[in-house]
Amino acid sequence: MYVFVVSFLMYVLLVWSGGTIPAVEIGIGLFVAIVAALLFRAWKPDRHWHLRGLNPIRWFWFLYYIFGPFAKGLLTANIDVAKRVITGEIRPGIVKVNPGLTNDLSKTLLADSITLTPGTLTVDIDDDGNYYVHWIYVTDENPTGEDIYGPFGLWARRLAE
């Protein structure tokens, strides 16, 4: 359901070029969205058709996350990396951290957030949910989650679990 609505809206958004949208474009959009949803269902047959992903409150929090904490993390990350590129002061290492997430979506969200925030890059995730994170300036060889991603673990749990 979620795939259907998002692909239909994306098609309509991209096809809009001022004025009204012709009916044939809506028809094509519906067809493409149905095909995409059926393909997704064939790929993951155990997923149910549910409306949880369409809850507007979740979407609001997601947008807030993107423009609030995530944008701030992105900014500090870039200033940090810029400083390291110019001074060449690095102390790299790969550390292990377990945020205890179970859902695929929340794991992806956290891994992408880690990659785009200060000094860290997700290298691998094993089956137990351990993240192996490349850290450009290791201050602690056995860090807690807070050291690596700050509040993003809480956000990922809140948005996607």
Binding site: I90, R91, P92, G93, I94, V95, K96, V123, D124, Y132, V138, E141
Partner: peptide, 8 residues
């Protein structure tokens, strides 16, 4: 390179 720790 120059890694201080490599848990993976």
């Amino acid at each position: 390179a120059q890694a201080v720790v490599d848990r993976l």
